[in-house]
Every structure is written in C-alpha cells, then in structure tokens.
Design a protein around this nucleic acid. Structure first.
Lengths: 334, 334
DNA sequence: ATGAAAGCGCTAACAA
DNA sequence: TTGTTAGCGCTTTCAT
C-alpha cells in the first residue's frame, strides 16, 4: 500500500494537522518542515487526491464531452484547453460520444457519478436535456461551438454567419453566381448559422437561393464525398462550392479527385479549417479558419474563473474566423 | 448537496448495508428493492464514485499519457480505446505531454496522485524512468507503439521494420534505386525500426545505403516540409522518397506542392497513415497504414484483463501494417 | 436478508 | 504553531 499522511505523522512524531497544513500552504516550523520533507522522500508519499476530493467535495477534475475526438477541430481545442487546466491542477476526463445523443447523456451521467467539478461540452443534443440534472448540482457548464435551447450557461462560439458570408462574398467578388454549399446537419446551430450566412450573402448580391445548390451533409468525410458528387450531378452550371467543416472539405477534395474534376478550372472550392491540409492541396485551398487555440484557451479561462467563484454574469463569447487565401478560387469573367 | 446513501436509508427505513447491497448486485427483498428505487428516483441519487473509490482503493479510472493528442495516430487509437474502457465503467484521463519528457513525468505523477487504476502510455522518455514509481504501486502499465529500455511491461507495438521493408521493396520493384527516407527522431524505437527496415531492404537488393538519402525528422508537419526540401536539394538523383509518419507525410506533400514538384513523374512518394488524406491527394498517395483501431482495442483488452487480475505473463503484441496502393509510385525503366 | 459499526485518507474546527 | 477529533460517502465485516 502507498504511504498515507498517518505514516508521515508516525515517522515525524507530528500530528496530522501539521502535515495537512504543510501540504496546504500553512505555517509549519522550519525544523518540522524539513522532517516532513524527509519522510515524504523516504516513504515516496503522494497525496491521495481521492480522499482529499471526498473531504473537500471537489475532485479537481473536469469532464469534457465532445461528438468526435477524432476530429481535428475538437482535438485542437482540447489540446490547448487540457494544457491550461492541468497546469492549474485539474484533470480532464474526455468522453467521445460518437455524435450520439444517448451516449452523450450516458457520458454526462457518468461524469456526474465521478463528481467532476464542471463540464465542458460541445453538444449533440440541442435540447440540452442531457445537462439538466448536472446543472442542478450548481457546478459550472461551459458550452463550446454550438448553441442549445434548453439550458442557460456560458459558451464560447464562433461567428459562423460571418464566416460563411465572408467565404461566399469572396466567391461572388470573383464572379461566381451558381455557388453550391455543403452544409451540416439541419439541427446543429453552427450549420444553421453557416447556411444563413450563405443565404444572406447570396440575397444581398441579388442572387436567388436555389434549393438544388444546398446539400445538408453530416460533417463526416464520407458525407463530404457524397455531398460533392450529388451537387456536381444535379447542378451542371455550378462553378463554385463552399464546404462548411473540415471533414467534409476533405471528403469533397476526395470526391473531386476521384471524379477527375480540376480545382479551380472546373470548380472553385472554399473549405473549412485545417490550414496544413489546405497547404497540402494542389492548388492550395482557400479556407475559412477557426481560432481553435483561442477557443480552447477561452473555455479553460472561463471554467477556471467559475470554479474559483468569480464571474457572475453569463459569458457568451463569440470569436471571429479568418479567411486563408489559397488558389482554389478562379475568377470568372462575363 | 447531492443525496447520499444515508438519505436513501432514512427515506426507506432500511440500513446502509441493504442499500449498498442493492447497488452491488446483492440479494434484496423485492419489496425493499422497489422502495429503494423509488427513493433513488425521488432524490435524484447518483452513486458517489469518489467515496466508493476511497473505500475500495480503485478509482475505475485509467490514465493515458501520449505525446500529442493532436496527431491522428494517437487520436484514432484513443477513440477506440476510450469507447471500450468506458463501456466497462472506466474513465480515461488523457494527458498530452507535448512530446516533452519533463511534462510526461509530471503527467505520470499527476495520475499517481489521482490514484488511477492503470496507465496507458505512448512513451517519450525511452528510459522509462517516468514510470518507475508508478510501477511500484503494482498497478498495470501498458505501452503503446514504442519500446522503452528501463521498464518491463505489456505493450502493443507494430511491426515497423516489416512496414518499412514493404514500402521500400515496392519502390525497388518499380525500378527505384535512389530512395530517400524521412525518418523519425533517432532515439524513438519506431523510427529506429523503420530506418532499419529501409536499410535492410536496400542491402538485400544490393544497394548501398547512402547517408545523404537519410533524413532524421521529428515527426511533425513542419519537420516534414523541411525534410523534403533538404532531401531534394542534396540528392539530384533521388527518384523516390519514403515518409515514415503521417505528420511528416503531410509536410512532405506540402513541400512538394510549394516547390512545384510533381508526384510521381518527378518524385515517387510513399507515405504513412491516414487513408483519407491519401485519397485526397492527387494522384492518390500510396501509404503504409497502421491498424490504429486494432491497437486501441488490444490496449483496452489487455489493461482490462490486468485489472481483473487475469493474465500473468507479459504480453508483447506486435501488429502488422498494410500497404494501401495509390498512384504515387512511378515505374522506372532502365 | 438486513442492521450496526468500523474505517478508507484526508481536511478543518477546536483546543492547547 | 501543533495535536485531537469528527466526519466526507461509501463498502464490508459481523451480528441478528
């Protein structure tokens, strides 16, 4: 068995309170401090955070529930976030719910039993019903990327409408009129907002929105392949396509590749996320880039503030995206 | 405050042991069972796993320490693994140590304090010194992907030598003689083995290994870009290059792109991992593909077996890779 | 089948 | 500053 504080007390002849005080930054006489440190060394003592957690009712653990770990948008956010949280003594338990509402609910219950101090969630269930019980514990919840209807809590989102508007306007400026969009699932807020940006940009340019140019994808690679094929087949006059997340962008490029369609001569493309992938495409892909690092940092900052009891008003951060110019958009002269 | 077993006891008039027995599959009279269930419902009771962990000396939590979460090889392995572990009631705390030995050591100590029941590690420190103290607890450690020298434990590896040999032999069969390799860090076992496979294949074909064709990269994207540029510059006669992980493959493709070198006319390429990226390349990239899902499954299986006290002998799994044919290798006629 | 009580390793209130 | 002690919520004997 591992050494306990009792062992240290016995070995040093001190009381438990002194040892505890030592670990919690209290005042301990220099002599005793040395004794304690020696004992720790000898016994290879490590604080038992489980026991501490039981007593303090705080596990120093944050639960993270996301749709797909194996998605670069998620993993980039988590990387930065976890770094900060760990440096503040918090562990993160990550639950990948495979874009499945039932699994998402399971994950939150699981984390509730684990008594995590807070939950960070990129929600799949837009009603937020999976979070209701946890919220009753009074512990903080921070939402990433997507809005939900049922639950009021802090969130870090991206200005998706503007992101899409920027992309579509770039295409319009280059003379494109028949622009396809590979959107996301109808119920996901980011997808709605991106589609809305697309529609607004078109309308503002006096171009009627045509249903056949809109494809509601599922944010997966294979979905992107299929979306591209469908759009190409049913729109002979389409000269450009805007793809609204990374996985589908990858899928669309695969589709174009396998159909032998050349970018940008035959079809202009604007993708989403993953700068490095964009650079690896030939010609380099023009993309909308989300500030994943910043999202991770902000989420960490917000939940830490809540855990320390700061911040009273709801925080609803909205971050901006950036267009990264490549060579995948051609100029059309009429 | 959340409800406790005491609250249920009070509400049902039963003793604590009965409630506990109910939760742990013991025999409880049907009448009482119903009463308990009603109370759970009413009080929104959720087991406190922290308290349970303190008592049972098992947290039902596994620590995972990896070099980079934001690497597809890692995230694919973790995805499958976490799925299985969670379905067995285990949480996974993931620590991304940023390919840094000091952070890796910190992570293991952190997990030790958290009293995780076991550690899964894709090691950065090849001496394994970061694992020594944890190993003394008698809890299981499973290594992924890389060998270490100091510590004896279960591992799930890949046959890297064969993987590299397959790739190089394919190039040789197609008439290539001046084959470059973008290898990994000298001290990492996978890199050594892949380089060894490259060297053996060359020697077996009667081709002397030329130092200038070997680049020791760092397994990062930017490292891949630089490696490719270096190899191309110092080997005018190089007709093919073998890249030994995904990030560097992405980097190499970026480099080729930016230098305007065509695959495979000017340079044949064999990459590593990420089938989808390979499909998105034009022409489709030929790659060595590692069985990430299987690795994840095996790791989960092994650590679960250990946790249940099964398995006595050290397990050293070695899985095979697969060549996925694309069109990035040209045939050279002489 | 159920109840009473001890104790897992820690913190914190109180006393000294 | 340091020691004593109660108790966090659970499991687990040991009785009954």
């Amino acid at each position: 068995m591992a050494a306990t504080m009792k062992d240290i007390a016995k070995r040093t002849g001190l009381g438990l309170a002194t040892i505890s005080s030592y670990f919690n930054g209290g005042n301990v006489r220099e002599k005793n401090r040395a004794k304690i440190e020696e004992a720790i060394e000898e016994l290879h003592y490590e604080v038992n955070e489980v026991a501490r957690g039981l007593k303090t009712n705080a596990t120093k653990t944050i639960g993270v529930v996301i749709p797909e770990l194996n998605s670069i948008f998620c993993s980039e956010i988590i990387t930065g976030m976890e770094d900060i949280l760990r440096s503040h003594g918090y562990a993160t338990i990550i639950c990948d719910c495979r874009t499945n509402r039932a699994l998402e609910k399971d994950a939150v219950e699981f984390l509730t039993r684990k008594r995590v101090d807070g939950i960070i969630n990129m929600p799949v269930d837009i009603t937020g019903s999976h979070l209701c019980d946890f919220q009753k514990t009074g512990k903080p919840i921070v939402l990433i990327d997507r809005r939900i209807t049922g639950v009021e809590c802090d969130s870090v989102l991206v200005d998706n409408e503007k992101a899409a508007r920027d992309a579509v306007e770039l295409l319009l400026e280059n003379g494109h009129r028949n622009i396809g969009i590979i959107g996301g699932p109808r119920e996901v807020s980011t997808a709605k907002e991106r589609l809305e940006g697309y529609c607004k940009a078109c309308r503002d340019a006096g171009i009627p929105v045509r249903e056949s140019l809109i494809y509601h994808g599922d944010y997966t690679i294979q979905g992107g392949v299929q979306a591209l094929e469908t759009l190409v087949n049913r729109n002979q006059d389409m000269t450009a396509v805007f793809v609204t997340n990374y996985e589908m962008t990858l899928g669309a490029v695969i589709g174009l590749n396998e159909l032998g369609i050349h970018i940008p001569e035959e079809l202009s493309v604007i993708g989403f996320d993953n700068l490095e992938f964009a650079r690896a495409c030939s010609p380099k892909l023009t993309i909308v880039s989300q500030p994943t690092e910043e999202i991770g940092r902000e989420v960490a900052r917000i939940i830490l503030a809540r855990l320390e009891g700061k911040e009273t008003e709801k925080i609803n951060q909205k971050l901006q995206t950036e267009m990264i110019m490549g060579k995948s958009v051609s100029k059309i002269c009429r």
